[in-house]
């Protein structure tokens, strides 16, 4: 079906008008962003300079549940290895030794490989003595992957130390028996 000439001409003009209208309309809708300098609703900084002490957010501004780098308070740690078992990516490595106190364990190695860590927070949840927690620290870089390995362990117990402890323990036991 052919349209009449006037109809086509009318449609043609309408197309042009609508196109111009829409293109300029979009421009004018975006114009308030340009003109209203400092209007709180529209003018918002999106990208913040990151290493900038003035404007960027510090760790204190992060919400309380932020999952930052993992930290272990080794004094509280019992070396139960629950976190090592539950870790989905096996980034925690624990080795224990017998302590001076036989009820406790000497945590000689407690390595968290932050290059593997996915910050799921499972290890923190299973930690019974609450020694493991997320800090708000999020800056952790290094030139080698080795640099991202954080060691919390107390180090291996030397043989002399072991002998010393053994002797001390014997002494205590004897004292206890003697009493």
């Amino acid at each position: 079906m052919r349209q009449s000439v006037f109809q086509s001409f009318h449609d043609y003009c309408r197309t042009i008008f609508k196109g111009c209208n829409s293109v300029l309309g979009s421009f004018f809708s975006a114009l308030p962003y340009l003109l209203k300098e400092g209007a709180s609703e529209l003018k918002k900084e999106v990208t913040e300079q990151y290493p900038d002490p003035v404007s960027s957010r510090t760790a204190a501004d992060l919400p309380p549940r932020t999952k930052g780098l993992i930290y272990n308070e080794i004094d509280k740690c019992t070396g139960c290895k629950e976190c090592e078992k539950i870790c989905p990516v096996n980034c925690i490595k624990i080795e224990t030794d017998s302590d001076f106190d036989p009820a406790k364990l000497w945590v000689s190695v407690f390595d968290v490989d932050h290059s593997k860590c996915i910050f799921c927070g499972l290890c923190v949840e299973v930690c019974q003595p609450d020694s493991l927690f997320h800090t708000k620290k999020f800056e952790f870089t290094g030139f080698k992957t080795q640099d991202l390995l954080e060691r919390f362990g107390r180090g291996p117990v030397s043989p002399e130390q072991k002998e010393k402890w053994l002797a001390l323990r014997k002494l205590r036991e004897e004292e206890a028996l003697g009493l």
Binding site: A30, Y33, L34, L42, K43, K44, E45, V46, T47
Partner: peptide, 9 residues
């Protein structure tokens, strides 16, 4: 200008 239009600095 582009930054202003895009609500950036």
């Amino acid at each position: 200008l582009t930054a202003d239009l895009q609500a950036r600095v």
